[in-house]
């Protein structure tokens, strides 16, 4: 689908994917919309749109605060859809992936959630607390609404688990770089990440991007040497108070690291 095609066109230009995350409603809906626009202008290949949840167990302190602030601001699903629609309108060629936890999706209703997301220009979903074993119901809904469901893999995913992930995931897999939560880190266990990517490639032909902990262009470059792309999130959330121009130039700089 749309996300898969993006990887093909990147490949033709000898580029890897820069996937950039930002939370709707942090620090408020309007500002987050402007920041997401600057992420698009900066050259992100895929944008991950965050929807806040009260109990974000996979997130570290930086993104936890974004969830809390957004909820305090009263952000609802309709705000996420509004922002998505605006971004899609402005950047029709950038696939948008909505990232949230399973409970909001479940409670709003799997089909309803997927249909409304699709209508707002969303191409796929990432749900960090939904492992492949529990994904069948949502997968049925995403498939019938024409959305991709992107599964996560981890350093602790052994061979058999990678196979399950590959079976379930659409277009790409998202490898978590470390055991732990989201958040920029000074050092990454590159050897271990590379080993996991190589293991994955022996099992799965779908592209694989690496996220969690990536905090500068050097990291981006190091990872893009062997993976199909990187995901950055906490780094951009941290930059939010520096304004959209700072975020645009950061994204531009990171994007350079993906070009070969």
């Amino acid at each position: 689908m749309e996300i898969g095609r993006k990887f093909e066109s990147l490949k033709e230009n000898s580029e890897k994917a820069l996937v950039a995350y930002f939370m709707v409603g942090y620090p408020d809906v309007y500002t987050s919309l402007k920041i997401l626009e600057s992420i698009g202008e900066g050259g992100a290949d895929i944008i991950e749109i965050g929807m806040p949840f009260s109990d974000p167990v996979a997130d570290g302190p930086t993104i936890q605060i974004a969830h809390e602030v957004a909820l305090e601001r009263g952000v609802r699903f309709k705000d996420v859809l509004y922002v998505s629609e605006k971004i899609k309108g402005k950047f029709p060629h950038i696939p948008l992936i909505l990232m949230t936890y399973y409970n909001p999706v479940f409670r709003i209703g799997l089909r309803d959630f997927c249909r409304k997301s699709k209508d707002a220009g969303i191409s796929g979903l990432i749900v960090p607390d939904l492992p492949p074993e529990e994904a069948d119901d949502l997968k049925e809904a995403t498939s019938s609404e024409g959305l991709s469901l992107v599964m996560l893999a981890s350093p602790t995913s052994h061979h058999e688990r990678l196979r399950k992930i590959c079976d379930k995931t659409d277009d790409m897999a998202y490898l978590v770089s470390v055991t732990g939560t989201t958040g920029a880190r000074d050092e990454l266990p590159l050897k271990r990440i590379k080993g996991k990517v190589e293991e994955y490639r022996t099992i799965c032909s779908k592209p694989i991007v690496v996220g969690f902990g990536i905090s500068n262009r050097v990291h981006v470059r190091q990872i893009c040497e062997f993976a199909d792309g990187v995901v950055v999130g906490s780094l951009l959330i941290k930059l939010a108070d520096k304004g959209k121009d700072a975020i645009r130039s950061m994204v531009r700089d990171l994007k350079e690291g993906t070009k070969f």
Binding site: V57, A58, Y102, P128, D129, L130, P131, E133, E134, M151, L152, A153, S154, P155, T156, S157, H158, R161, I165, V176, T179, G180
Partner: peptide, 12 residues
């Protein structure tokens, strides 16, 4: 019931 956790915990 079930097991709705991040992938990292699945092996554990």
């Amino acid at each position: 019931g079930g097991r709705f956790v991040p992938e990292t915990l699945m092996y554990a």
